[in-house]
Design a protein around this nucleic acid. Structure first.
Lengths: 343, 343
DNA sequence: GCCCACTATCGATACGCATCGACGATCCGC
DNA sequence: GCGGATCGTCGATGCGTATCGATAGTGGGC
């Protein structure tokens, strides 16, 4: 059974093919009478327009390209909700989502644009500097929205968590609850080497905030995945621990659970003997043992913003343009791992 | 800057457009001389063929549709490696991947085929029965590969873990190490209600295996996500525990870590006082505390098989067809949570 | 030196849709 | 009751590629 074409619909409805087209796009007025006849014919044949032909004729694909950071050791916790939200936002506007993995590098971008595979691109997992995809993205004939903020966005729109604010939230919370010393359990060397921008932005702001509160601190990095590394990191954090109130800040989301385990194994109870604040999704935070007080990177909200920006770029409305660098506010949720302030 | 067309390439190389096309597809002999001239022209213009036009003319899109089970409460651990492997298998053959979420139901399938968006479809998250997507999929003009085995595959090819074998592996392991009683910590009600096929296939085989070994057992279900439910489940499993050797089998991957926590919190050490075998990816198993002996669902291998089947359907080779129901062997990895056999 | 088989290339066409210009019909104001 | 504007529809064209049939050139067998 071969698919029906708009010509079949036209014949059945007793109109010309172009009229069928105008009924579907609404780009010219059609009398209510014929409109209904055409719609009935469409329904009867379960007609669907051929995407390739439509793209060829209209120069629009109604496809959004999504470049995701698979096979990087990056935090994968936020990735699935991110993709999911992109997909449903796209569907709301009758766009499809084409998946490209980041390991294709800039070649993937060129292909998406060169073959006219999509009308716009969402590019995740932005590196700090030296990411050769940024200049390529900036030179493409289709709009690109970055998730993450490179050192030089080259005019591209970016959406990201406000990592500096996330850092301040965590540090301020620990300062407000009377902690006397901080330790930051940072990322694996792979991520630091790639010079991921958010890693540096977080740490810079965190240290500045600690200074502002006059709190001594220690930065523990790199911290590789796995419990052995977590164990060492905790060793280092506890090294010269007296009776002071120590707060651990763990931006490395994969290290949170191992750190909690290691502390527990030593009889050090998070929330009683030491404090821990992690950066991870709420779902992950609820599933740690014990549930960790967290700052959430809000993957759903950031992908929603990315799509909003993208659709604006595809079809600018009188309402002003979205911010070129759209930073969204993190949210701190108190759970059980921060010691309450004394008295 | 508007994209170049094959006509531009032809002009630059001093040949006709059709010759450019034959150089690219290799469907007719072209002299080495002109071939090189054309290739040079392609390179100079960084020409890429327009996908829409190609699809329209050739009736092939070079796109694989992937229907993924977002927003279901299902186990998401195996999803990312699955998608990743699908994507890279597709790329190896110069296919793109179009993402559709399962919440669109059969409408998504119809759209994929009706609009000629793709040449073939991978459909994940197959329900046991009453899944209205199966008959729709079976009636589509494009090949569909199912991940998961419905009660009636209606002639469609399926790929899945051999869940009955997984169950036997787990039970046999516990029997071989001298356990005297088993408890199965099963799935949340949402998954049972949806009548996911693998849930039943696993449990049926597990109970049969237990019977075969003459082991008494208890099935604990439903077990909702979260520690409260895990706590109750463990209560129930330990209820009439004497000095017998108890083995817990946890096919519900999201329950594994909470169960281990609850046991630990009660001073019951997995691997010494009780045994636990979970069904989860190796990566997840390595990250539990302690590392859980697991049976892996092997998402990478199953997606590889799915793609192999799919490409065979797109282009049957003399080598026989892949099995209609392709069950892959699970692998049991001993870690630390199963008590060794007594002398 | 003639015919045949084959190679390498070209020109023309079709794929299914969007879109533009054109045209008959209808309606308004006067 | 006439000109001009508006509405509703049609036919023709082009989007960029794959592919078919045709054709000029090439070489081998006799």
């Amino acid at each position: 059974m071969v698919a029906f074409t708009s010509k079949d619909v036209a014949r059945l409805a007793g109109v010309s093919q172009s009229t069928v087209s105008y009924v579907m796009t609404g780009k010219r007025p059609i009398s209510e009478n014929t409109r209904l006849r055409v719609l009935a014919a469409i329904k009867e044949l379960t007609y669907e327009p051929n995407q390739g032909a439509r793209a060829l004729a209209s120069q629009r694909t109604n496809v959004v390209g999504l470049v995701v950071p698979f096979s990087s050791g990056a935090d994968t916790g936020g990735l699935l909700p991110f993709i999911e939200t992109i997909a449903s936002s796209a569907r709301e506007r009758d766009y499809e989502v084409l998946l490209v993995t980041a390991d294709e590098g800039s070649a993937g971008l060129r292909r998406l644009a060169g073959r006219s595979l999509c009308d716009a691109i969402v590019l995740m997992d932005i590196h700090g500097r030296g990411d050769d995809r940024i200049p390529v993205a900036a030179s493409l004939p289709v709009p690109v929205v970055l998730v993450g903020v490179p050192e030089d966005p080259m005019g591209l729109h970016c959406v990201d968590l406000d990592y500096p604010l996330a850092a301040r939230l965590a540090v301020d919370e620990l300062a407000a609850t009377g902690h006397e010393r901080l330790a930051f359990i940072s990322h694996p060397s792979e991520m630091i080497d790639r010079d991921l921008n958010f890693v540096r932005r977080f740490m810079d702001a965190a240290l500045a905030a600690a200074d502002r509160h006059g709190l001594p601190y220690e930065v523990i990095a790199p911290v590789e995945p796995g419990r052995a590394a977590a164990n060492e990191a905790v060793d280092q954090a506890l090294a010269d621990r007296g009776s002071d109130r120590l707060g651990l800040v763990v931006p490395n989301s994969r290290a949170i659970q191992p750190v909690l385990h290691v502390l527990n194994a030593r009889g050090i109870v998070p929330g009683r003997d030491v404090s821990v604040i992690g950066v991870c999704t709420d779902r992950a935070a609820e599933e740690t043992e014990p549930p960790v007080t967290n700052v959430s990177p809000e993957p759903r909200e950031s992908s929603r913003r990315a799509m909003r920006t993208l659709f604006w770029l595809l079809d600018p409305t009188p309402a002003g343009p979205p911010p070129a660098i759209d930073l969204l506010e993190p949210r701190l949720t108190r759970r059980s791992t921060v010691m309450p302030a004394r008295c």
